[in-house]
Write a protein that binds this DNA or RNA. Sequence first.
DNA 1: GCGACAG
DNA 2: ATCTTGTCGC
Length: 274
Amino acid sequence: MACSETEPPEQETLRRWEREQAQLKANVIEEDTEEWQKDSTFAGLERVGGVDLSYVKGNDTVACASLVVLSYPDLEVLYEDCQMVTVSAPYVAGYLAFREAPFLVEAAQRLQEREPGLRPQVLLVDGNGVLHHRGFGVACHLGVLTGLPCIGVAKNLLQVDGLAKDEQHKGQIRDLQMGGDVFPLRGTSGRVLGMALRSYKKSTKPIYVSVGHRTCLESAVRLVQSCCRYRIPEPIRQLQADIRSREYIRKHLSSPLGGTSPGPGRKEEAEPKH
DNA sequence: GCGACAG
DNA sequence: ATCTTGTCGC
């Protein structure tokens, strides 16, 4: 029986999740491991992936798990996969991966089975990497589980390690003049946890990029910026726009565990607000 | 009571 | 995350 709400987690569940994060965290590599990352134009990079979960309104448990692979640097869609899923774990800030990562791993496995040649060389993840309460956000989590280089891209600042949306932060945002401008997110600990990036000339609100796995922060920011036509980098934006335009969620509301086939026609791009 | 709260 | 509504600029 499908319930429309997930239960809040037990204390014991949180402690178990925390232990699992600590174990997996030992495997994170916060450095470039690929040849293309060392090149200023990313020569050798041909496929960039994006993953995301979109939820049905008013229902906490039914979601669409999506994965897209785009060509680089053209950012054309090479592969896309949408799968309606039933989420069981609740959303708890700091434990997003336990809610979403299992379905994203499944999507990556489906890709490996169906089109191994289209395996992305890097994955953009909706959420944070090391910019996280315990330094292990969903982008790290997914990176370790899949072995793929991963980059965390968050639309809002996760206020950890003393980072806050205070006047200083707002001032730094105001100082981001051009697309591509950045400032480092240095926590109280002194560590740079990520970068705020003005990803789009006309966007006042930055995005927050952090290392997930097998990349350093500098090349992660450079790559994300090179994937931005609008505020949200294309691999992630494509998913969101695409799901909305095809009304996948509405179609599958009556049969939550329905099929996965990508339909035909794609709607033309719509500009983001503002 | 108040603010915070990736998605 | 999801929803609405309106407004500006191209």
